[in-house]
Simulated assay, not measured.
Amino acid sequence: MIASIVEEVLREIGMGSGADGRLGRQAGDREQSGRFAAREDGMPPAARPDNDLHDITSQEEKAKPTLEHPMDPEALTRMMGKTTARIGVGKAGPRERTRTWLTLRADHALARDSVFSDVDEGLIDRLKLVSVQSMCRDRNEHITRPDLGRKLDQEAQQKLVSACKAGVDVQLIASDGLSSKAIEANLENILPVIEDGLSMRGISTGPAIFVKFGRVAVEDAVSELLHPKVVCILIGERPGLGTAESMSAYICYQAVVGQPEARRTVVSNIYSGGTSAVEAGAYVAELIETILKEKASGVDLKH
């Protein structure tokens, strides 16, 4: 019984032992020959410019449901437009579909690249940032020793003292944190908006600082060194599989080393798929004005 079923299946796909099988093999040979012939120009078909290729990691492609025959396609599309979670992807048996698996792998690679890459030096130069490095010597130490990312060595301290103004109302800081991609994607749009917003309100600022291999609390070390009333650090957040470009602003009034995290006011999810950099910049400037007026930040501001 089983043997007859196998024979029938083989005949159907053109691999039987009789004439049908020979025809199937001949058809397969022609198809294989065509594939090789397509490579005579030295370029595989998938690499040719006339092929319809898509970046499966783009937001446009991720917005397309791959679930077959949904009961309510319009509702599914609306749901997918409200979240970056992986819904509407369907499955192949008990496993995810190949497209879903490939997208997960691609997003994971983007996240790793964001953590292990450096911020473009050209961006730092264009924004005229005072660039220093935390006590971390390299990227590996930055990831494994967060305590060193919160500190500045003697050389960095001397550079900041000589290049920055002491006692300003607000000291703005940028740092790669755990996502250089977030800084590259957002800093050039958000920083000028914050600076202009503070200037329009008559709030003084010093030259903005960039801290390589920095952590959030490095702003406390800067605060103790330069004594601004408020420090605000724009830092790349730990990337996930949804995005590697999310940045946050941590703002603190009269920050000191060793203070509780509850003293910080946070504006998070700053990226193209969350709060845009320009919108976030306007909000941060307004928020800093409130913090200066109330002389408090974090949970103290809410009280």
Rank of each mutant, 00 (worst) to 15 (best):
F210N: 01
L234F: 14
I203L: 04
G202H: 12
E237T: 12
S223F: 03
V222D: 03
H227Q: 14
V218T: 11
A221I: 06
T205I: 15
H227A: 13
G240V: 10
R238D: 09
G206N: 04
A221N: 05
P228D: 08
F210L: 05
G236P: 14
G236H: 09
G240I: 12
I209V: 15
S223I: 10
R238I: 14
C232T: 05
L225H: 06
T205M: 14
G214I: 08
V211M: 10
C232Y: 08
A208T: 14
F210C: 04
T205Y: 08
V216T: 01
A208S: 15
L198C: 13
C232P: 00
G214Y: 00
I209Y: 08
L198W: 10
G206K: 03
G214S: 02
P239A: 03
H227T: 12
E224I: 07
S199F: 14
S204E: 08
D220E: 15
P228H: 04
E237G: 12
L198G: 07
L198A: 11
C232H: 01
F213G: 00
R201N: 15
E237R: 08
C232F: 04
V218C: 08
A217K: 06
E224N: 06
L234K: 00
L234W: 01
A217Y: 04
I235S: 03
V230L: 11
E237D: 11
V222P: 10
F213S: 02
R238F: 12
A208P: 15
E219I: 10
V216Q: 00
P239G: 01
G240R: 07
M200F: 13
L234A: 01
P207K: 06
S199K: 15
V211K: 04
F213L: 14
V218A: 06
P239Y: 09
R201T: 09
A221Y: 01
I233R: 05
L234Y: 03
P239I: 05
L198S: 10
G214V: 03
A208G: 05
G240A: 12
P239L: 07
G206F: 09
V230F: 10
K212G: 14
G214D: 02
E224A: 11
V230D: 08
L226F: 13
G206V: 06
P207E: 13
P207I: 04
V211P: 02
E237I: 12
D220W: 06
K229M: 14
A208L: 09
G202K: 11
G214T: 01
I235R: 02
P228M: 07
R201E: 15
P228A: 07
V231Y: 09
F213M: 10
V218S: 08
G202L: 13
K212I: 05
F213C: 03
V216R: 00
